[in-house]
Design a binder for these strands. Structure first.
Lengths: 249, 249
DNA sequence: CCTAAATCCGGTGTATCTGCCGGATTTACG
DNA sequence: CGTAAATCCGGCAGATACACCGGATTTAGG
């Protein structure tokens, strides 16, 4: 990829973002990913989403430009258990360069070695994305660019990738119909649930808030009803994912 | 701000990011924010963090270039309850332009009117940030640029702001010593906790996983111990914030 | 003015959780 | 070859949650 100046063909990024915002069908995703490869001169790009679908015990969402062979091989070898992009990338906030991984590790070397044979680039970056409701994703790109070009890409286009990752995740969420109908809790309900979430009993919460234990139970009950939760634990989980437990109104 | 090309003075962004990564003292933040204003020709910048400190029932973290008068006035008027940047911005994933807010709303008009008197720019964007542990932040910038310049800024520098917001949040987290010692749950423990979080009882979870109810209770107990949780609800909350409930290992 | 919602309080019976006692095999690691 | 951790199972007593019953005042909005 050649160096470009900011005003000329940023248009391609904007075009991608726009398409991501308008996409209505999952079948359009591969095309978009391919377009992304072209624009930035990448070898592969992969989206791995977790918690983007409605059901709880669900396999992760995958959208990649990898060959099917690599995906199958990856699954068969249970690479996810040792893949540092997943193990480390999913647990941090900022992007990570694959060079930072421990190449001394036998398994890791094998993984990246085989990955190369299956068509992944030598260099790679993974960008974590965090959604509002506990959903998260990892967008990984690879490239076979020269050291010089790679450094340039990393430096000047990281923000593009960051933005693309964010919008990609948003698009997937929209496609998966992950729309959370925000139940509105009253301040007291929220407050009670907040302390219960901290492990307090109804009695302890009552002491903390200066209420009767019974009143606390009532608030918890109505909070459960509003959230459609089976019990306090469920309610805390739902409210937490909907970020209703932040002290901000 | 003048148009710049990508290779010349992106250096200023990189310098900012580097400083953010190295900052060790909260007193250095105002200077960094000031530098940010200079670089992008902005009027104000504000960081509002939620869940960045250890305690649960805590007031939000604030780092702004606003005048103290505006902050005091804002608090006194309880603007946070009607401020759409907070009410809406904190509940979404993608950045939002202040132009998108409902100017027909009496309260909103009053808020932005007074904001202007206190030195905020006419235009504004708020960028939500989501951390790994339920922590979140809102980085808001304002400007008095001309329509043309504002459009240009929004289009071409949104990604810079996005990145800055992310790194700013990361820096604050580091400063606040919000380091979560990741308890490691075994797959079974995680699985049991996952279904309990969905509102299932121990018995139901046992049926789902094909275990005895007692075994499920044992896993939950050890999960509670590992997480230092007082009960299942607390454990679900802690594990959720530490994103240990994603099905990925 | 009326209605809805939020704020409060009490009791009861049953279901569930929690902690703590005991046991077992398999696997991985040094 | 031990050791630790993960995977499983059973029982019991007391604490807690949960659902359902009843009541109240205050406040905001149509």
């Amino acid at each position: 990829m050649n160096r470009r100046d900011r005003n000329s063909d940023d248009l391609e990024l904007f075009e991608l973002l726009e398409k991501l915002g308008e996409i209505t069908d999952a079948t359009g995703i591969p095309e978009l990913l391919g377009r992304l490869l072209d624009i930035y001169g990448l070898k592969t790009v992969a989206y791995l989403g977790s918690g983007v679908t409605a059901q709880p015990g669900q396999s992760p969402y995958l959208a990649v430009t990898y060959s099917n062979e690599w995906v199958d091989h990856y699954k068969a070898q249970r690479f996810v258990d040792i893949d540092p992009t997943v193990q480390i990338g999913m647990r941090r906030m900022l992007p990570i360069d694959w060079d930072e991984f421990d190449r001394a590790d036998e398994d890791v070397r094998r993984l990246f070695g085989e990955a190369k044979e299956f068509g992944l680039g030598r260099r790679g970056i993974s960008l974590p994305v965090h959604g509002q409701h506990g959903d998260r994703a990892l967008v990984s790109i690879t490239s076979d660019a020269s050291d010089r070009d790679w450094r340039y890409l990393r430096l000047h286009y990281m923000r593009d990738f960051q933005m693309l990752a964010l919008h990609m995740h948003q698009a997937i969420l929209r496609l998966e119909g992950k729309t959370v109908e925000q139940a509105r809790l009253s301040p007291r309900e929220r407050e009670c649930l907040l302390w219960v979430a901290e492990g307090k009993t109804a009695w302890e919460t009552a002491v903390i808030l200066g209420l009767s234990e019974h009143t606390v139970r009532c608030y918890l009950e109505s909070a459960r009803h509003k959230l459609g939760a089976a019990n306090n634990t469920h309610a805390v989980n739902k409210a937490g994912k909907a970020s209703l437990l932040s002290q901000l109104p």
